[in-house]
């Protein structure tokens, strides 16, 4: 057994290498100690995932997509998850956000474990604690933009005035006041995604999950959306977790996790770097880690 320390940028990550029991292949399993430029851990953890494993299929065809992932996200973080196709990014996100169940392991959000919850409780939890932004917008095209944004309140009742106030603030931040009474098919992709973001944020969630939010957008709309998300993250200290394969998008995050073959390979922190520097670092990390299979 070997223990190696790798220095990436100014952060020390310790890797414990061990021999896999089943194969001769050396797998990297990491237990990392982070020392990030004095920032350290920010108070409460919003999201904690421990030893998450996800196996698809039955015994003979079983495929382990997530191989025991540990993850912790603190309040106010903007976390990016990157990785090649098939590395388990979306599966991880789905498991963390309660849409999918882990085969093993525990997910806790705001101190509440998701594993014991029933369908109804989970739905309520998602509605109240989580926000979602998806690549294909996931707007209902029979509803206007405003109705789409206020959709979560169709169940969790909120006084109209309060809802209106929150709506006003959000659409102001996202710059979609003009299109409130339009239908999704009448507005651009970027506007749709900002609508989707507004819907995700309207219930003041503890955590926002974004799955490839810029995937279907042109670079200009993508940048606009990411700037909006960054702004909301900073101004309202909303915790955001974003899956992306786009290095530019990832460079808006405060921390980026790299996933490979179902395990966390490494992570990088933005710290005080400019977005350009951070982008460079992400690119470098990708190339250090082999880079093959990356879409970026």
């Amino acid at each position: 057994m070997n223990i190696t320390a790798v220095l990436i940028d100014d952060k020390i990550v310790t890797y414990h290498l061990f021999l896999s029991c089943k194969s001769e292949e050396v797998r990297i399993h990491q237990m990392y100690n982070e020392q990030s430029n004095g920032k350290g851990r920010k108070g409460l953890s919003v999201l904690v995932g421990r030893k998450i494993r996800k196996i698809y299929g039955k015994k003979s065809t079983a495929q382990e997509v997530l191989k025991g992932i540990d993850i912790e996200v603190s309040k106010g973080e903007f976390v990016g998850i990157m990785g090649p196709s098939g590395s388990g990014k979306t599966t991880l996100l789905n498991v963390l956000c309660s849409i999918d169940h882990p085969t093993e392991g525990v997910v806790e959000i705001n101190g509440q474990s998701l594993s014991g919850m029933k369908e109804k409780e989970l739905a309520k939890f998602r509605r109240e604690q989580l926000g979602f932004i998806f690549q294909d917008y996931n707007l209902l095209d029979t509803l206007t933009v405003k109705e789409n944004i206020l959709l979560p309140f169709s169940i969790s009742k909120l006084p109209k005035a309060a809802a209106e106030a929150r709506l006003k603030e959000l659409v102001g931040l996202l710059g979609i006041e003009e299109i409130l009474n339009k239908y999704p098919n009448e507005v651009s992709g970027g506007q749709k995604q900002r609508t989707s973001a507004a819907r995700a944020l309207i219930s003041n969630p503890a955590l926002v999950f974004a799955d490839e939010p810029t995937g279907a957008l042109d670079s200009k709309s993508a940048t606009a959306l990411l700037k909006n998300l960054e702004k909301i993250n900073q101004q309202k200290s909303t915790t955001i977790m974003m899956v992306t394969h786009d290095s530019v998008a990832a460079s808006f995050c405060s921390r980026v996790l790299f996933l490979n073959d179902g395990a966390i390979y490494t992570e990088v922190y933005r710290g005080d770097k400019t977005r350009q520097q951070f982008f460079q670092q992400i690119i470098n990390t990708q190339s250090v880690l082999g880079g093959d299979g990356y879409d970026a």
């Binding site: 109804k120 707007l139 169940i155 819907r199």
Partner: peptide, 15 residues
């Protein structure tokens, strides 16, 4: 698809 969206953002089957 709509049901999928709604369930993702927190509508239960009963809702």
């Amino acid at each position: 698809e709509s049901y999928k969206i709604l369930r993702k953002i927190g509508f239960s089957t009963n809702d």
